[in-house]
């Protein structure tokens, strides 16, 4: 039957570029599952997250991650989180696995292909981000683990601080090219 097979096309073709003081890299092996907490059963959902992911529910605008770094939990809103699984090439299957474990306790939706993800790292990444990101990224106010959903150059974007000088940026996959263009222009303009 299956004489055809499908090949994935990364949204930016696996783009990476080292500008010296800034490095951009597309993340192509990460599953993103959205978790929604059922109304009235948030405590139960929180417990399920602890059981399944071994992670505490972070505050809105913050994240936690597993010690081995393979799983991160981003709290986007009061009843919505993203669970990131690194090293996963098949987002939908990863989401299914999570969905099975959560059962009725949490509503899950595969978001892996909704987003294009980039890491931006290096000492000049903050200067480049100043040109597109409305969020105050001063480490006192946006520390490691903090995240924000905002807009950059007209594009909805999630920014997440991985370390002092490394950020993950997620934006809609359909406009990945325009998003990359915006980030590259910001870097070109400050270097």
């Amino acid at each position: 039957m299956a004489k055809f097979s499908l090949q994935p096309t990364p949204f930016l073709g696996g783009f990476q570029k080292d500008y010296g003081t800034v490095i951009i890299k597309e993340i192509t092996d990460r599953a993103i599952t959205s978790l929604a907490l059922p109304l009235g059963f948030e405590a139960k959902a929180e417990k399920a997250i602890k059981t399944v992911l071994k992670l505490n529910l972070p505050e809105v605008g913050m994240s936690t991650q597993s010690k081995d770094g393979t799983t991160a939990l981003l709290r986007l809103g009061k009843d919505q989180l993203f669970c990131l699984k690194n090293g996963e090439n098949d987002g939908y299957t990863a989401h299914k696995a999570l969905a099975d474990k959560f059962g009725d306790n949490i509503y899950t939706t595969d978001q892996s292909d909704v987003w294009v993800s980039l890491t931006l790292s290096g000492p000049d990444s903050l200067r480049a981000l100043e040109r597109v990101c409305p969020i105050d990224l001063h480490p006192d106010r946006f520390g490691v683990g903090a995240l924000a959903r905002t807009a950059m150059e007209h594009l909805g974007t999630i920014i997440h601080r991985n370390s002092v000088a490394e950020y993950t940026l997620m934006s809609a996959s359909s406009s990945a090219g325009s998003f990359l263009h915006a980030i590259k222009t910001s870097i070109d303009n400050v270097l």
């Binding site: 809105v60 986007l76 809103g77 009061k78 919505q80 924000a148 959903r149 905002t150 807009a151 909805g156």
Partner: peptide
């Protein structure tokens, strides 16, 4: 009423 469309959708 304001909707945080470029944010948490609240």
């Amino acid at each position: 009423l304001w909707y945080h469309e470029q944010g948490d959708r609240s």
